[in-house]
Simulated scan of single mutants.
Amino acid sequence: MEWFFTPFGVSFVERALWGGLLVSGICALAGTWVVLRGMAFLGDAMSHGMLPGVAVASLLGGNLFLGALTSAAAMAAGVTALSRSPRLSQDTGIGLLFVGMLALGVIVVSRSQSFAVDLTAFLFGDVLAVRPRDLTVLAAALAVSGVVAVVGHRGFVALAFDPRKAQTLGLRPRLAHALLLGLLTLAITASFHVVGTLLVFGLLIAPPAAVILWARSVPAVMAGAALIGALSTVTGLLISWHLGTAAGATIAATAVALFFLSALAARLRDRRSRSTAPTSGPAPRMEPEHAS
């Protein structure tokens, strides 16, 4: 078992492990709702919308996390404002903000002659460079995400399965949507420096998507997604150590590979269920929880 324990005996790999585990928990809480509500494009747009804030913070010598959080929050506020227009679809508003924020970020980056390395880290992450204070930030982000997930759970469920019911029950769907955007913003900004913006969806989408094929409740999806994210982190770091591959990309690729394995197993299960329909029950299906 030396091949397993030796990498994690190195301090920076150990920090990377803890960072990946914390990110897995954060992404499980937000990613479950991203998958349930079909918000992948919004998440992608918001992750790239962080570039102006990160670029300005880097050029001014400020905190990259706060720069990313500010930029992503502005993106979320813009999406919320544009979604209220009856003449524009939400996808149109997201697309416009996506292009605008990305263009602004590239303009800021173009003003610097030595931004290439930082931009690469922004896009692809550097999980092996996680510092102790980064772990503190991630732990705080996980705690806040947990509080938001618990407080907004009833509204999120009604919003995901029946928005009209959310309005009828007085759950304030607009507030629930804003809280959900905040949860997604926090997950993306907390994760980008670990796996990068282009790879953040490896942990944000793949684990919940893998579990949703089997689970019957939202909490089960979140717990399963956190476990798959943790498995992806451990496996990805081991592969990266022994094969010399990029750690963040390997973690994300492992998460996506686990999703395809889950999808294949679910397909085989469904085929078996159809062939034995008279004697077997239906395949597991996500059920909307009681939101009242």
Results as ranks from 00 to 15, higher is better:
Phe4Pro: 04
Phe5Asn: 01
Phe8Asn: 09
Ser11Asp: 11
Ala16Leu: 09
Ala16Val: 07
Gly19Cys: 01
Gly20Ser: 05
Ala28Lys: 01
Leu29Ser: 11
Trp33Lys: 01
Trp33Leu: 08
Val34Ile: 14
Val34Met: 12
Val35Ala: 07
Val35Gly: 05
Met39Trp: 12
Asp44Tyr: 10
Met46Tyr: 11
Ser47Pro: 03
His48Gly: 03
Met50Phe: 07
Leu51Ile: 12
Gly53Glu: 09
Val56Glu: 00
Val56Trp: 12
Ala57Ile: 09
Ser58Arg: 09
Leu59Ser: 12
Gly61Val: 11
Gly62Leu: 09
Leu69Met: 15
Ala72Ser: 08
Ala72Glu: 00
Ala72Tyr: 05
Ala76Tyr: 04
Ala77Arg: 00
Gly78Pro: 01
Val79Leu: 00
Thr80Glu: 07
Thr80Arg: 05
Ala81Asn: 02
Leu82Ile: 12
Arg84Val: 01
Leu88Cys: 04
Leu88Arg: 08
Gln90Tyr: 00
Ile94Tyr: 03
Ile94Lys: 08
Gly95Cys: 10
Val99Trp: 07
Leu104Lys: 06
Ile107Glu: 06
Arg111Leu: 07
Ser112Tyr: 07
Gln113Phe: 04
Gln113Pro: 04
Leu119Arg: 06
Asp126Met: 06
Val127His: 01
Leu128Ser: 13
Asp134Leu: 04
Thr136Cys: 06
Ala141Val: 06
Gly146Met: 08
Val147Ala: 15
Gly152Glu: 00
His153Val: 04
Ala160Tyr: 00
Gly170Phe: 03
Arg172His: 12
His177Gly: 10
His177Arg: 13
Leu180Arg: 01
Phe192Ala: 09
Phe192Cys: 09
Thr197His: 02
Leu204Lys: 05
Ala206Phe: 09
Pro208Thr: 10
Ala209Thr: 13
Val211Ser: 06
Val211Gly: 11
Trp214Asn: 00
Ala220Tyr: 07
Ala226Arg: 03
Gly229Leu: 02
Thr233Trp: 07
Val234Ala: 10
Leu237Gly: 02
Ile239Asp: 04
Ser240Pro: 01
His242Pro: 03
Gly244Val: 04
Thr245Ile: 05
Gly248Met: 02
Ala249Thr: 03
Ala249His: 02
Ala252Tyr: 08
Ala253Pro: 02
Ala255Gly: 09
Ala257His: 01
Ala263Arg: 08
Leu264Phe: 15
Ala266His: 07
Arg267Ser: 13
Arg271Tyr: 03
Ser273Trp: 11
Thr276Lys: 05
Thr276Ser: 07
Ala277Lys: 14
Ala277Asn: 02
Pro278Asp: 03
Gly281Ile: 08
Pro282Thr: 14
Pro284Gly: 11
Met286Gln: 14
Glu289Gly: 15
Glu289Ile: 10
His290Glu: 15
Ser292Tyr: 13
